[in-house]
Simulated scan of single mutants.
Amino acid sequence: MNARIRVLLVEDDLRVARVNRDLLERDPDVHVVGSAATCAQGDALAQALKPDLILLDVHLPDGSGLGLLRHWRAHGLTTDVALITAADDEASVRLALAHGAFDYLIKPFTGARLQELLARHRTRRLPGPSAARLDQGRLDRLLGHGAAPPAALPRGIDPNTLERVVLALGAAQHAVTAEEIGEQVGLSRVTAWRYLEHLVRSEQATLEHQYGNAGRPVKLYRARTP
């Protein structure tokens, strides 16, 4: 089972905040623990609730979300923060990334893109405090480094969709079916199966068969560990 993700929303538009909450909590392992409409509220809730993930707007009534992000980093808050905002200028994006935002979604965005953000957060989650050291493979995943892309992808395999499938598969804590990956990424079962089979052929995933009492065996996929 995936570890539970506790999310704090910092969004001054209450309607947008409700929509984002509904989208997030379609994932049973995601729980929105708080919602703030200002920088001051967001700062107080971040300190009190200690969420795993903060989704932050830029334009807030009492200041800029970018300023709040800078404040958090200056005071040692290392929580994953992603910007979800209508601010689409390059300067805002650069500042967000410079201050440690790990993702940036421009409104309006798709549910699939939000699921990709969650998948990226899952791959970045550090081990518990008992694991004081990281191996290079785990650190590379934390930093967002994947395997080098192949020189050419087969016909019908889109690189952006493939990346989303890889992220979703890597975030899974157990072997999953094509239907489960399709639901996470926003693909049909058949399309998800095609991408998963490509990952098996390229040795980025392993295939297992689960045999039941009757009928055809269920195909289960698991990300290949380095």
Results as ranks from 00 to 15, higher is better:
P61Q: 03
L169M: 02
L169H: 00
P154Q: 10
H145Y: 15
L142H: 15
P127N: 05
L66Q: 05
R113W: 00
D158F: 12
Y104V: 14
P149I: 03
D89Y: 04
G128W: 09
Q115V: 08
G67R: 05
G146T: 02
G137P: 15
L69P: 00
T79R: 04
L162K: 00
G76W: 03
L167V: 04
A82P: 02
A131G: 06
T177Y: 08
K107S: 13
L139N: 01
L134A: 02
L55I: 06
D89E: 12
A87G: 11
L142N: 14
L56Y: 01
R94K: 14
L162A: 03
L97A: 10
S92R: 06
A87P: 08
A152D: 14
H174T: 15
E90C: 15
R155E: 15
L77E: 06
D89I: 04
N160T: 15
A175L: 03
R70T: 09
D62E: 02
A119W: 06
V93C: 13
T123K: 14
P61R: 02
R164G: 10
S92W: 05
L139S: 03
H121I: 11
G100M: 08
A172C: 07
L139A: 06
W72G: 01
G137N: 15
R125Y: 12
P150I: 07
